[in-house]
Amino acid sequence: MPIYGTALLAACHLLGIILGDLLGRALGMTTNVGGVGIAMILLIVARYYLHRSGRLNAASEKGVIYWGAIYIPVVVAMAMQQNMLVALKGGPMALIAALASVLVCGCFVAFINRGEPLPHPDSNEVESR
């Protein structure tokens, strides 16, 4: 049933937030440290083991997949409630920061990819997938 998937997601979420809070406290802060990231790792691990033991069926998975698919709309809703008036005061900054980081990263991509050995003729991975 889809609720099992959603409940699994909720459990990972809560556990991640709790662990993030504990980590934050251990580091001497009152804030949550990486709770969302920890929750994601928990979900990846949970999925891996439940899948291997065959205890996660397609119907249950739907209960997670739906929420993953809804994440762009949620981000859109998040965008709708931002304090834009103040943000626009820093308009040029957003453009400069974004442009600079894209340029720096682009140069690194080009640099790393130039070090790539030529693909073997027998490893046509793209086509075989």
Partner: peptide, 24 residues
């Protein structure tokens, strides 16, 4: 209601859910 939908709770919930698509 947009505030609730785009609030921290649902946002984090949905982001965590995207990890489900990642295969180790």
């Amino acid at each position: 209601g947009v505030g609730l939908m785009g609030g921290n709770m649902l946002r984090d919930f949905a982001i965590v859910a995207t990890a489900f698509e990642v295969h180790p």
